[in-house]
Design a protein around this nucleic acid. Structure first.
Length: 901
RNA sequence: GGGAGCAUAGCUCAGCUGGUUCAGAGCAUCUGCCUUACAAGCAGAGGGUCACAGGUUCGAAUCCUGUUGCUCCCACCA
């Protein structure tokens, strides 16, 4: 622990009472340099344990990170996702909550195993030549060496995770929890073993879940192949298929029962070309009479629908493929050839023998493995499943009833649909990297589920089986471990100890508050976490799920490594600063919307950092004169900004509550850039006389510094580094007084009249500036200003200062020969030294008059409409009445001006 | 094939349960400024029949129906 606050870089730190030296401006660089600042503060936050969370009596605020693949490197999606989490966690921390953000990585069995296999191959080692133990040793070495780079990268972004809690889904304890879960669910009857048609990845040699298969549109050849009807000399039945090699596994031909073309053939047999196997011609309504020839070949071992047909008609199933996608002995021909080679070969042979009658081109979709990008093969194999139908019900209910909120809520529909049609979950994977399935087989193939070999033996012994036993070779699906993540990161023993005995951490942090993740994994991760949460803790794992969009390039393509269209996130941080990149990403990305990313967004963020930096340079350059009187303009400015700040803060808070982070950021941005910098600072800025800044009075200085501090606080969740740096540059801080734990400002009540009154002044200033620019007058040229009637004069000094007005004079009579305009409902006049163009003025005023008269008639018409008055709400009618009286007075004013010309 | 969602300035998006000082913001564009915090800036300005066609209503960007276009999810006719 070091309580020493790092020294600000590049500038000397003056206390506010110190006199300004002429060259001080020179000491502060003109632009903000993020790099050194970022390293310095991140290290300091770490050293002093600001990210650390331990249960105490504060309200917890918890986020568990969606664990990135341990093999992963930071990409733009992670940047967006983790920036959002950091914004939420930092604000919660400032609100005085015990903020806990748990980081970690996922072992990602298929992805990681593929990487390790590839690396071993480079070293000339073939996985097949290794034992399981040897392979795993290599894998762990790899993991220790290269894994988790991504977490280091997150630090560069400013992620304020509690790194002491870093978890890995294959940590010993977390793995044990996976086994506990498997055993428990098996005991409860949810987990079963069965032979099913699964998505087989012939490259990774494993089953993958439906979610890991992506479909690609393709143009395929549809081959028409004729089969001879058995016992005839020249009667044929023609089928159509895109996969001619699978005819070797045919066990039937199926036609529609009402298809007259084929009724007489049903029940007869046809001969599979080349091999001459006789298969029965059956009838089933599943067949589409219109497609192809209306006759379908049935290959139960290699097609999901055929498999179902096979079950229904009790057909034999012939598996003609080896696990690696080559033809098996059962195919009889082409044995050992790859499936795609075989396809070419068999087409050639069929053509030669005259079996191909036609070839069409059709569009269809083909499933590819998300992991290895090879064509998925439907394959029959024994696998482990979780029965989902009953099990998932609480998770459906939780979302539908709003126990768990999806943000944006448009995803509820999709979620509901999926959960209502949920399929059993195939959880076994034919891999080594992962939690090995705790099932054991005896010599006759019976199995028991048990945590250890000894327990398994004991189980078998009870059944009277005493021979040698072996453990299932497979591991569980990665999601079968990550669905426990919100539980096991806090209490890995929760599953075996049971709901009643969960530890203090889990009790304190669970349910977590918000989960920030991508919609793609809503089903296979989010939904399953909810299921596990209710099953094992009896409560939801989180209250809100913030779904981010996909980061795309300018052309709307998904950013991917293969396209090479993803900018290097660390390069962006290098170029624009972490704060700049964070702001850039968040400015235009409401929840659930895709983010078409462009570097210019980060540029805007960088510019914003710079703006804040320069505001600081201004304030820091002021010399305080404690004997100076506070000017009226400064006093008014302080009143206004205080009101404005509170008004905007309430809005910002509201945006946060609704998870509208880009809106919260935009409101913050405008408050800082427009209200604070462009208006407030300009108003209180001391005058320059003879090239030297006059000193500022103590009251105004103190107020400005305090405002600056408030500004920094609301900036901090978005821009942690610059806000921490300036917090320390603005004043000397002692001990662990830091921005990261500063108190989030309270939104106090404010006087709305001050704000509207200042709006009048702003309007006046803008109009006068426009007047100057139209007259091609220099801003330096001083003008006079007259005001008619009995105006609100609180902000006249403000107008005077910002519009370069020598004096604002209140007059009874409208002055002649003057440019006149309205701001609010006040009439202003700029007396003209020369002659004004009367025609031009008249035209301008008449246009204004016409608009207001038109507006008035429309309001009057509405108010005269009986049905409007009868049907509209009273407040609507009141506001219409107010509009009418406002318009009337405006019209009167313009008319007076016109009369004056 | 089934379902969901979207369509508002050049771009990215606000616009809550219908009410013309709501047609808005940021960026980009244009004009004028190197004004001692900031040219990564300052001061101004222009830009949209709210996809199209109907309908409900005193009143529609906002509700309903249809059309067109786009996106996503689910299924997969071999």
């Amino acid at each position: 622990m070091s309580g020493v606050i790092p020294k600000p870089i590049g500038i000397s730190c003056h206390s506010k009472n110190e006199t300004n030296e002429d060259n001080q401006q020179m000491e502060i660089p003109k632009t903000f340099d993020p790099k050194s600042v970022e390293e310095k503060w991140y290290a300091w936050w770490m050293e002093n344990g600001f990210f650390r969370s331990i249960p105490d009596d504060r309200e917890p605020y918890t986020i568990v990170i969606p664990p990135p693949n341990v093999t992963g490197v930071l990409h733009m999606g992670h940047m967006l996702n983790n920036t959002i989490q950091d914004v939420l966690i930092r604000r919660a921390r400032m609100q005085g909550k015990n903020a806990c953000w748990v980081p970690g990585t996922d072992h990602a069995s298929i992805a990681t195993e593929a990487k390790v296999v590839a690396l071993l191959k480079e070293q000339g080692i073939n996985k097949k030549d290794l034992s399981r133990e040897e392979f795993l040793k290599h894998a762990w070495v790899w993991k220790e060496k290269y894994g988790g780079i991504i977490l280091e990268q997150l630090k560069k972004l400013g992620a304020s995770c509690d790194w002491d809690r870093t978890s890995f889904t294959m940590d010993e304890q977390l793995s044990e929890a996976v086994l506990d879960t498997f055993i428990d669910l098996h005991k409860k009857g949810y987990i079963y073993r069965g032979t099913r048609m699964v998505n087989w990845d012939p490259a990774a040699l494993t089953a993958v879940s439906d979610e890991e298969v992506f479909m690609k549109e393709a143009t395929s050849k549809l081959y028409y192949i004729k089969y001879k009807v058995e016992g005839t000399s020249d009667e044929w039945i023609t089928i159509a298929t895109t996969r001619p090699e699978t005819i070797l596994g045919d066990t039937a031909i199926c036609v529609h029962p009402e298809d007259e073309r084929y009724t007489k053939l049903v029940g007869k047999k046809a001969l599979v070309p080349l091999i001459g196997r006789a298969v029965t011609i059956i009838a089933d309504e599943y067949v589409d009479k219109e497609f192809g020839t209306g006759a379908l070949k049935v290959t139960p071992a290699h097609d999901k629908n055929d498999y179902e047909l096979g079950k229904k008609h009790k057909l034999e199933s012939i598996d003609i493929l080896n696990p690696d996608g080559t033809m098996s002995a059962a195919a009889q021909l082409y044995v050992g050839q790859d499936r795609f080679h075989c396809r070419k070969a068999i087409v050639k042979d069929l053509e030669e023998k005259g079996h191909i009658t036609k070839v069409d081109e059709i569009k269809n979709s083909i499933g590819y493995s998300e992991r290895t990008n090879v064509v998925i093969e439907p394959r029959l194999s024994p696998q482990w499943f979780v029965a989902m139908k009953e099990f998932s019900k609480p998770a459906l209910k939780a979302v539908v009833e709003g126990e768990v909120n999806l943000i944006p809520d448009k995803f509820i529909n999709t979620y509901k649909y999926w959960m209502e049609n949920v399929q059993d979950w195939c959880i076994s994977r034919q891999l080594w990297w992962g939690q090995r399935i705790p099932a054991w087989y005896d010599e006759s193939g019976n199995f028991v589920v048990a945590k250890t070999e000894a327990e398994a033996k004991a189980e078998f012994a009870k059944k009277g089986s005493t021979g040698s036993i072996r453990q299932d070779e497979d591991v569980v699906d990665t999601w079968f471990s990550s669905w426990l993540w919100p539980i096991t990161v806090f209490d890995p023993a929760a599953i075996r100890n049971g709901k009643a005995n969960i530890n203090a951490d889990l009790k304190y942090y669970y349910p977590t508050n918000d989960l920030v993740t991508a919609p793609e994994i809503l089903f296979f991760w989010v939904a399953r976490m909810i299921i596990a949460g209710y099953e094992y803790v009896g409560d939801k794992p989180f209250s809100n799920v913030y779904l981010t969009g996909i980061v795309r390039d300018k052309q709307g393509r998904k950013m991917s490594k293969s396209l090479g269209n993803s900018p290097d996130p660390l390069g962006l941080i290098e170029k624009f600063g972490a704060d700049g990149v964070r702001v850039g990403m968040l400015l235009c990305s409401p929840a659930g919307n895709d983010l078409p990313f462009d570097e210019s967004m980060c540029e805007q963020g960088r510019n914003f950092s710079n703006k804040i930096w320069n505001a600081f340079r201004l304030v820091k350059g002021w010399t305080v004169d404690s004997s100076a009187a506070q000017p009226d303009v400064a006093k008014a400015a302080i009143d206004w900004f205080d009101a404005k700040f509170n008004q905007q803060l309430a809005e910002i808070n509201d945006h946060y509550t609704k998870f509208r982070l880009s809106d919260a950021l935009m409101a913050t941005y405008k408050l800082v850039w427009d209200d604070f910098c462009a208006w407030y600072l300009e108003l209180v800025k001391p005058e320059f006389v003879d090239g030297v800044s006059k000193p500022i009075d103590a009251i105004t200085y103190a107020a400005s510094a305090e405002f600056f501090e408030r500004i920094l606080k609301i900036l901090h969740p978005f821009m942690p580094f610059i806000s921490e740096e300036l917090y320390h540059l603005l004043a000397e801080r002692k001990g662990l007084d830091a921005m990261i734990v500063a108190k989030w400002p309270e939104a106090k009540s404010f006087d709305a009249k001050v704000i509207s009154s200042f709006e009048m002044a702003q309007q006046a200033v803008t109009t006068i500036r426009m007047y100057r620019s139209q007259k091609q007058m220099s801003p330096k040229e001083v003008l006079e200003l007259k005001v008619a009637g009995n105006p609100d004069n609180k902000f006249f000094p403000a107008i005077q200062k910002l519009a370069n007005i020598s004096s604002v004079e209140v007059v009874k009579e409208n002055p002649e020969n003057a440019y006149s305009f309205n701001a609010g409902s006040t009439n202003f006049f700029i007396p003209s030294s020369g002659s004004i163009n009367i025609e031009e003025e008249r035209e301008r005023l008449e246009k204004d008059l016409a608009y207001n008269k038109g507006f008035l008639t429309s309001v009057q018409k509405k108010l005269a409409n009986e049905r409007f008055v009868a049907n509209a709400k009273p407040e609507v009618i009141d506001s219409e009445k107010k509009k009418m009286s406002d318009a009337e007075s405006k019209i009167k004013a313009i008319e007076a001006q016109l009369a004056n010309l």
